Simulated assay, not measured.
Amino acid sequence: MFDSFPGGASERLDRPSYHADLGRVYTSGIGFLNKLERGQHFKERGFPSWEAFADGDWDRALSLAEERREEYAQELRQAARLGVRHRRLRVVEFPITPYVQWELFVLRVRMGLGDDIKVLDARNISNIERTSPVPEVVILGNAVMYEVIYDEDGNAAGANRYTDRPLIQETNAGFDALYERGEGFDDFFNREIAALAPPRVSGAPTFGSQECARSLRAEVPPT
């Protein structure tokens, strides 16, 4: 699974070029979007809920978590108009990192709007990740695949763009297999997240032990 991904040929795009290309392809009749999230530590500068979380103000972070509800709703309405099915799979390591704890509260807002999200315990794919983590990608149908690139401080810096059809199909097949094994978001959230104490945030690293600057969180398509 994902055997060909590490050696796949890609084109590096800066951030404006990535956003422009993604927006163009997204509206071209792709049919579906698959998003696989693997990293456990990220920064979301400019997102007030994340800023509050990073400042240690957990109550305010949660109160602000719904601030993008209308933006998310517009995104999903656009997807429906275009006939694009969204699926997101969030891989979670234990113990759960402060960032992931915060992110799952944000994803709960998306779930409430009808987004299709599952969660996968990283311990259940340890056999797949013997040599490297599963790839962190946004896949637009069988047309284009992006691996978003962040700098060492967690700032989005562009993406690696893949267009090789067999590689994209193989990665989609891997995503499908993992998605089938994923747990429903609400079940996971209610069992593992809802009762957690507020996270302690004090100089947490940008990347986890299994990540590098080339394996980072992919962004959602623009609306």
Rank of each mutant, 00 (worst) to 15 (best):
F2S: 02
A9M: 13
S10R: 08
D14M: 05
R15D: 15
Y18C: 01
Y18H: 04
D21S: 12
D21E: 15
L22T: 05
G23H: 12
R24K: 11
R24V: 02
V25P: 00
T27H: 10
S28L: 06
G31L: 13
F32Q: 13
K35R: 14
K35P: 00
K35C: 08
L36E: 08
Q40D: 14
H41N: 14
K43A: 09
K43G: 05
E44G: 04
G46P: 02
F47R: 11
P48V: 03
S49F: 10
S49P: 00
W50N: 01
W50H: 07
A54E: 07
W58A: 04
W58P: 00
D59T: 05
A65C: 09
E71K: 09
R77I: 07
L82M: 07
L82G: 03
G83E: 08
R85S: 11
R85M: 10
H86L: 12
H86W: 15
H86V: 06
R87T: 07
L89A: 01
V91M: 06
E93W: 10
F94Q: 10
F94V: 02
I96M: 15
I96E: 01
I96A: 00
Y99H: 03
Y99M: 07
Q101Y: 09
W102C: 00
L104D: 07
F105A: 09
V106D: 04
V106R: 15
V106Q: 12
V109N: 05
M111A: 12
G114D: 09
D115C: 06
D116A: 00
D116R: 05
I117L: 13
K118L: 03
K118G: 04
V119I: 14
L120I: 01
L120G: 00
D121N: 15
R123W: 10
I125Q: 00
S126E: 15
N127C: 06
R130I: 07
S132R: 15
P133D: 00
V134I: 13
E136A: 12
V137G: 06
I139C: 06
L140G: 01
G141F: 05
G141R: 06
A143Y: 12
V144W: 03
M145C: 03
Y146G: 00
E147A: 15
V148K: 03
I149T: 05
I149V: 13
D153M: 10
D153E: 12
G154H: 08
N155P: 04
A157D: 14
G158R: 05
N160Q: 13
R161S: 02
R161M: 06
Y162I: 10
T163V: 12
T163W: 02
R165K: 09
R165W: 03
E170A: 10
E170G: 01
E170F: 04
N172A: 06
Y179C: 02
R181Q: 13
D186Y: 03
F189K: 05
F189H: 04
N190Y: 11
N190H: 09
N190F: 10
I193V: 10
I193Q: 07
A195C: 08
L196N: 02
G203R: 12
G203W: 07
A204M: 08
A204E: 13
P205L: 07
G208T: 03
G208D: 14
G208H: 09
Q210D: 12
E211A: 13
A213W: 13
V220R: 11
P221L: 08
P222K: 12
T223A: 14
